[in-house]
């Protein structure tokens, strides 16, 4: 169950689901293979259908329609949680996402809301291959009027899920396959390990990590989701091997973009690296880089560096997947490039 005193992320999410089901009887959960005893492909819904048989619906394999079904339910006063087994399959729902879910409220002149939650795991590093390993959040980022939230192992996963269910807007709660099995290392006494952590307010907070009490920092690395542990490894290596100190900002709200914590950190460090697991082009790093240079040009001493996956498929074989996805080494090198530019 626990790992170093922390419960695993999948379990925390599971308990949060039980909590919201107990708290509100207008919440339903739909998805493939979500019934007990199976409890979902990643076991996040375990025990839920036994406890709430009328509110957990196992569905046909019809993602393109399921997004619409959830939208219809939300239009009529339910608060559906749609579990999509792999983030890759969000692709089947794009018509509903772009032309329905995200539009109904504004195009119907605020006469309706669409309070639904889509939960889905993104991410690779498990050898699942090209169609079960992607990080597709950048495709959602350009869709106005939805909220895209990336859970990380250091976030309060319970709070993120509860906030998503309470939100009147459509929320995409992006989980991560590797995260599920890892301990939910929430800050304790404002610390995660050696790092001091500051947390912003609001339903989907950002966490800012510093190993120097926010006093010394050569660069800010902004990241989210499954990339957070990779980035924390990288900044630890930078301290140990190069005596370079970085701040790390772990966003949870990717859209609408909320970059105040990034700007605050960059004001201290003067340099920015973005790190995401999705492919580089048109990615979240590009959006953040554009916004940070607009708002904080004078704070930036050096050009923004982006770390991301190579533009291509996520291969299955381990060495090929490792080469394609961004690694701690890539983050270290991006910071070292900044240092080289400085010196």
């Amino acid at each position: 169950m626990s790992a170093g005193g922390h419960r695993r992320c999948a379990q925390v999410l599971n308990e949060a689901l039980h909590e919201v089901f107990a708290a509100r009887d207008d919440v339903d959960l739909l998805g493939e293979d979500v019934l007990d005893p199976y409890g979902g492909a990643f076991k996040v819904t375990q025990g839920l259908s036994d406890a709430y048989p009328d509110r957990v619906l196992t569905t046909p394999i019809s993602e393109a329609s399921l997004f619409g079904v959830a939208a219809g339910m939300a239009l009529r006063g339910r608060r559906p949680i749609l579990e999509i087994m792999f983030g890759d399959f969000v692709a089947l729902g794009f018509d509903q996402i772009v032309n329905g879910i995200s539009k109904f409220r504004e195009m119907y002149d605020d006469q309706v809301t669409v309070p639904l939650v889509v939960r889905t795991p993104m991410g690779g590093r498990r050898g699942y291959g090209p169609t079960h390993s992607q990080s597709l959040e950048k495709l959602l980022l350009g869709v106005p009027n939805i909220v895209v939230v990336a859970a990380s192992e250091c976030h309060d996963l319970r709070a993120l899920l509860v906030a998503a269910v309470e939100d009147e807007r459509p929320v995409f709660l992006l989980e991560n396959k590797l995260m599920y099995g890892r301990p939910n290392r929430r800050p304790e006494h404002r610390h995660v390990g050696e790092f001091e952590v500051r947390e912003t307010g609001g339903p989907y907070p950002a966490l800012t990590f510093s190993a120097t009490g926010f006093s010394e920092g050569s660069a800010t690395v902004v990241t989210y989701g499954g990339m957070l542990p990779v980035v924390l490894d990288a900044v630890t290596e930078l301290v140990l091997e190069h005596e370079i100190f970085c701040e790390v900002v772990a966003l949870s709200q990717l859209a609408p973009p909320e970059l105040d914590p990034v700007l605050e950190s960059v004001a201290r460090t003067g340099a920015l690296v973005t790190a995401e697991e999705g492919t580089l082009t048109g990615g979240i790093g590009a959006e953040i880089a554009a916004r940070v240079q607009e708002a904080a040009w004078s704070d930036l001493r050096r050009p923004v560096q982006r770390v991301a996956a190579r533009d291509g498929i996520v291969p299955s074989a381990r060495p090929l997947e490792d080469a394609m996805l961004p690694s701690a080494r890539d983050v270290v090198e991006a910071v070292l490039v900044l240092e080289a530019v400085r010196s």
Binding site: D28, D54, A64, S65, L66, F67, G68, V69, A70, A71, G72, M73, A74, L75, R76, G77, R78, P80, D95, Q96, N99, G100
Partner: peptide, 19 residues
Amino acid sequence: VLGSIVPVATGIALAEKKK
């Protein structure tokens, strides 16, 4: 968007049935 409305109407029916 042609077709798009059919699953939404299905979801509406599901909600109304639950209610």
